[in-house]
């Protein structure tokens, strides 16, 4: 019986085995990169909104406190999106002819709410509560980034579980003084002594049980 395969097939076989390993690795690495890329996580991607609301103008320039609009952030899980009445507190007098604000005036006149595009939305199988993070001294900018410098809103962090755990494992790297939680100008990492003192003072625990968030 003649030989079916030429001896060179040995080399080809070895190369293809190596190739398979590397190609598979490359494919897996590519998938992992794609999952972490802004294409999937939306980090740094500006969302289309009915009104081009600028946090830079309202927070950075005018100096409004986060809580002027996000009134429920200290007491509930949800920070709260203000009703158009809150916009009209000032815009009943300012920029009253602006075409950009026409949807706001229409909404106020008709009672039909504006349909904002949500920028931060954790998956439904994750329990998240704003109020507890605020009362434990986690500043807004730690998660939302320098909002006072954002002309339009984007997501600053991936909201991946790893990102949550980075802080839940080592809260001392992210904790700040409660008095500065809403101060968008302060985004510093405290020195270890001060940070650990705050961790004790606020009774912060490193919560990494699955059911802390998946309940």
């Amino acid at each position: 019986m003649p030989q079916i395969f030429h001896p060179s097939m040995n080399t080809i076989a070895r190369v293809s085995i190596f190739g398979a390993v590397f190609i598979l690795t490359a494919i897996i690495a590519l998938l992992l990169l794609v999952v972490r890329s802004p294409y999937v996580t939306d980090v740094g991607v500006v969302r289309e909104q009915p009104v081009p609301f600028s946090h830079k103008h309202h927070v950075g320039d005018v100096g409004l406190d986060c809580r002027y609009c996000h009134t429920s952030v200290e007491d509930s899980s949800f920070a709260g999106i203000p009703p158009t009445k809150t916009c009209m507190n000032c815009h009943s007098q300012l920029f009253t002819e602006s075409a950009m604000l026409q949807p706001v005036r229409d909404s106020f006149a008709t009672g039909q709410p504006l349909h904002w595009t949500r920028v931060h939305d954790v998956p439904d199988f994750v329990y998240f509560d704003h109020s507890i993070h605020i009362h434990k001294g986690i500043g807004c900018v730690k998660c939302h980034g320098p909002v006072n410098e954002m002309p339009l809103m984007w997501r600053e962090q991936t909201l991946h579980m790893k990102w949550c755990l980075d802080c839940h494992r080592q809260p001392e790297l992210f904790v700040g003084d409660r008095a500065n939680v809403f101060n968008t100008a302060i985004d510093v990492q405290l020195d270890p002594v001060a940070a650990n003192a705050l961790v004790d003072k606020y009774h912060i625990q490193s919560k990494t049980d699955c059911y802390t968030c998946h309940r």
């Binding site: 899980s77 949800f78 709260g80 999106i81 998956p123 439904d124 199988f125």
Partner: peptide, 10 residues
């Protein structure tokens, strides 16, 4: 599962 059929606030 990330967007289950229940209402979130607002």
């Amino acid at each position: 599962m990330a967007d289950q059929p229940h209402y979130e606030p607002l």
